[in-house]
Amino acid sequence: MDIDVPWSAGRWTTPPARIDEQDDRLVVTAVEGSDAWRETYYGFVHDTEHALLAPFAVGTAVEVEFTAPFGEQFDQAGVFVRAADDRWVKAGVEFADGILQLGAVVTDGRSDWSVAPVPEWLDGRILVRVSRAEDALVVRASVNGGPLQFVRLLPFDGALTAEAGPLVAAPSRPGFAVTFTAWRTTDADGTLH
């Protein structure tokens, strides 16, 4: 059951610098300094990410597809899942230390961060998928229509009311624009392996 989510169905956590709807695509330009992070190591709290959120139920998955000109430190795009100001997940790709990285930030009071390099994904059409089970989220991703690869399994209480959808942030530069080509919900992944 794949259901396209209209761009108008979501609400922004923080309004972007610019939004352009072009045919079925949504081009989102980030505000310089936008980001999501809580405390760990750096000591600051940033809650200025641009996430377009709609309800996210147990037993479903949310997918977004996008392209972007990644190239500056911490340019990022993917899926944002939010239950509260201090309980959220961002999953996708981020340009860090000169290379495109695939990973996730999981925040439950404080943030953690895990990444793996995917330089071959630069300039590709990236899909990020987050499935919601009774007690967990499963993050997978792919590039250019290839097979989904496992990114992360993390605890996430099924009793929480959550929202999810496309994410953009640009901590270090103005003008970073992500072109989203799809936002949809589907059935959650049936198995982990």
Score class of each variant (00 low, 15 high):
P6W: 04
A9H: 11
R11I: 04
R11D: 03
W12R: 02
T14A: 12
P16G: 06
Q22W: 07
Q22F: 05
D24G: 13
D24V: 12
R25P: 00
V28R: 00
V31G: 06
W37G: 01
W37N: 04
Y42P: 00
G43S: 04
D47C: 05
T48S: 15
A54K: 03
A61H: 01
E63N: 02
E65D: 11
E65P: 00
F66T: 01
F74E: 03
V81Y: 02
R82C: 07
R87I: 14
R87D: 12
V89S: 02
V89Y: 01
K90W: 08
G92E: 02
G92S: 05
Q101E: 03
A104G: 04
T107V: 10
D108A: 14
D108N: 12
D108L: 10
S111A: 12
P119L: 11
E120R: 12
E120Q: 14
W121V: 09
R125M: 07
R125K: 08
L127W: 00
L127A: 07
V130C: 04
S131I: 05
V138T: 07
P147K: 10
P147E: 10
L148K: 06
Q149A: 15
L154E: 03
T161F: 13
A162R: 01
A164T: 06
P166D: 04
L167H: 05
A170R: 02
S172I: 02
F180G: 01
F180W: 12
T185P: 00
T185N: 03
D187R: 13
G190M: 09
L192Y: 14
